[in-house]
């Protein structure tokens, strides 16, 4: 287990859900872990939506005091610097979508590169319109790497169609995921699915969600 785990990817690919689940799982395995919300792109759907569950599981949440308060002020919590620089702490970093969100990481990437004790996962949903195939997903990946100043170490295939997801929705994307892995030379580390759908070879997720029928 690397000290820092970073989740980046295309806008709306599921980064926050994955980061929250990852942090919860780390906490369950007995690790002391903190999660930092570095999303400078979207004022809605934040790590902080899961603050209660995270804190109940012993995960410290680093987020702006006004995250989810409707104050639309893209900035980075100062405590995140301590998490990145203090080598005794385990951290999960939830970064905003696309290369625009990844710019937020640029401030930290020299420390992260120097320490070299991190995993950076590319979260991809092949049912999103701008990452429908391996080539487009690869382009998005490269844009993020350039913006963040870091390279990915793994791919998480989080393909889904929201409430209409079936096992096939996920398995039909395996071909593109393999292609993306070959194109980039980066391994697929997990296939994820909402827990009621996940088969034994998938990582089950608890989703934050607010649904309007």
């Amino acid at each position: 287990m690397k000290r820092l785990t970073l989740f980046l990817g295309h806008y709306g690919s599921g980064k926050t859900n994955l980061a929250v689940n990852w942090a919860m799982n780390m906490a369950k395995s007995g690790k002391s872990v903190e999660i930092a919300d570095l999303d400078i792109v979207n004022p809605y759907f934040r790590t902080k939506d899961s603050q209660k569950e995270l804190e109940a599981a012993g995960v410290k949440v680093i987020a702006l005091p006004f995250a989810n308060s409707s104050v639309d002020l893209p900035s980075i919590p100062s405590e995140a610097y301590a998490l990145v620089e203090d080598k005794s702490r385990y951290g999960v970093l939830d970064i905003g979508g696309d290369e625009r969100g990844a710019y937020a990481l640029g401030r930290f990437s020299p420390y992260i590169r120097e320490e070299d004790n991190y995993d950076m996962f590319y979260v991809v949903n092949f049912h999103r319109p701008l990452t429908r195939n391996a080539e487009d997903a690869y382009y998005c990946m490269k844009e993020i790497e350039v913006a963040s100043g870091l390279v990915f170490t793994g791919i998480v295939n989080n393909s889904n169609l929201g409430a209409e997801t079936t096992v096939e929705t996920i398995t039909e994307t395996y071909g593109e995921a393999d292609k993306l892995s070959k194109l980039s030379g980066i391994p697929i580390v997990a296939v994820t699915a909402e827990k009621s759908i996940a088969t034994s070879d998938m990582v089950p997720l608890n989703l934050q969600k607010r649904i309007f029928d």
């Binding site: 949903n125 319109p129 169609l161 929201g162």
Partner: peptide, 9 residues
Amino acid sequence: EKVLMKGNE
């Protein structure tokens, strides 16, 4: 085919 989109997108 269906894709998963935000309303704005």
